[in-house]
Measured scan of single mutants.
Amino acid sequence: SEIVVAMYDFQATEAHDLRLERGQEYIILEKNDLHWWRARDKYGSEGYIPSNYVTGKK
């Protein structure tokens, strides 16, 4: 599975969105859409994140 790191904070506005915290790692579950990826955080929460807010883990 692909691990990404959040470059920016993202506040979830929709129920299906996942909040991003800058510097935290997330697991990508689905990339069915170019701009919104389904991800899981370290607490096990899942939701959609803006793909341009994250970068591949170095």
Rank of each mutant, 00 (worst) to 15 (best):
D41I: 03
Y48H: 05
T13Y: 10
R38F: 15
V54H: 01
A12V: 08
H16N: 13
Y53F: 13
E2S: 09
E30K: 05
R19L: 07
K57S: 11
G56D: 14
A6M: 01
Y26R: 00
R22Y: 09
H35W: 12
R40E: 02
P50R: 06
Q24P: 01
R40T: 04
G44D: 04
E25V: 09
Q11L: 13
D41L: 03
S1M: 15
E30R: 05
L18K: 00
N32G: 12
D17L: 15
Y53R: 07
W37Q: 00
L29G: 00
E21W: 08
E21L: 08
F10S: 04
L18P: 01
L34S: 13
S1H: 15
Y43D: 10
E25D: 07
E30W: 09
N32R: 12
K31Y: 05
W36G: 05
E25H: 08
Y48F: 13
L34D: 14
A15P: 15
R19Q: 12
Y8S: 07
R19K: 12
V5Y: 10
A12H: 05
W37V: 01
R40D: 01
L18S: 00
G47N: 01
W36E: 03
Q11S: 11
P50T: 03
W37T: 00
L34Q: 13
V4Q: 03
Y26W: 01
Y8V: 08
D17R: 15
A6R: 01
L20P: 02
L20E: 00
Y26I: 02
N32F: 11
E2L: 13
V4E: 00
I28F: 02
H16V: 08
L18E: 00
K42G: 06
E46S: 05
A39F: 04
F10H: 07
L29Q: 02
L34M: 12
G44I: 03
A39H: 02
A15F: 10
L18I: 06
D33P: 03
L34Y: 10
Q11G: 08
G56Y: 14
T55I: 13
D41T: 02
A15R: 10
H35N: 11
Y48D: 03
I49P: 01
K42S: 08
L20T: 02
D33Q: 08
I49E: 00
E21A: 06
Y8I: 08
Y8W: 12
F10T: 03
E2K: 07
D9P: 05
Y48E: 02
R22A: 13
D33G: 11
Y48T: 07
V54E: 02
I28D: 01
N32K: 13
R38A: 03
I28A: 00
Q11H: 13
A15I: 12
Y26K: 00
E21Q: 10
P50L: 05
W37A: 01
E2Q: 11
M7N: 07
E21D: 08
F10I: 05
D41F: 02
I3W: 11
D9E: 06
N32E: 12
T55M: 11
N32V: 13
S1P: 15
I28H: 00
L29V: 08
R40K: 09
G23E: 05
N32I: 13
K31F: 06
R40A: 06
V4R: 04
N32Y: 11
S1Q: 14
E46T: 08
W37R: 02
R19F: 08
L20S: 02
Q11K: 11
D41C: 04
E2G: 08
M7H: 05
G44C: 06
N52W: 14
H16Y: 11
A39G: 05
S51C: 12
A6C: 06
Q11Y: 14
D41Q: 01
G56R: 12
F10D: 00
E46K: 03
K31A: 08
R22K: 14
S45T: 12
E25S: 10
A12F: 04
H35K: 11
A39M: 02
L20D: 00
Y26D: 00
A39Q: 01
Q11I: 14
G56L: 14
E2R: 09
D9Q: 04
L34E: 14
A39C: 04
L20F: 03
Y26L: 03
G47S: 01
A6L: 03
R22T: 09
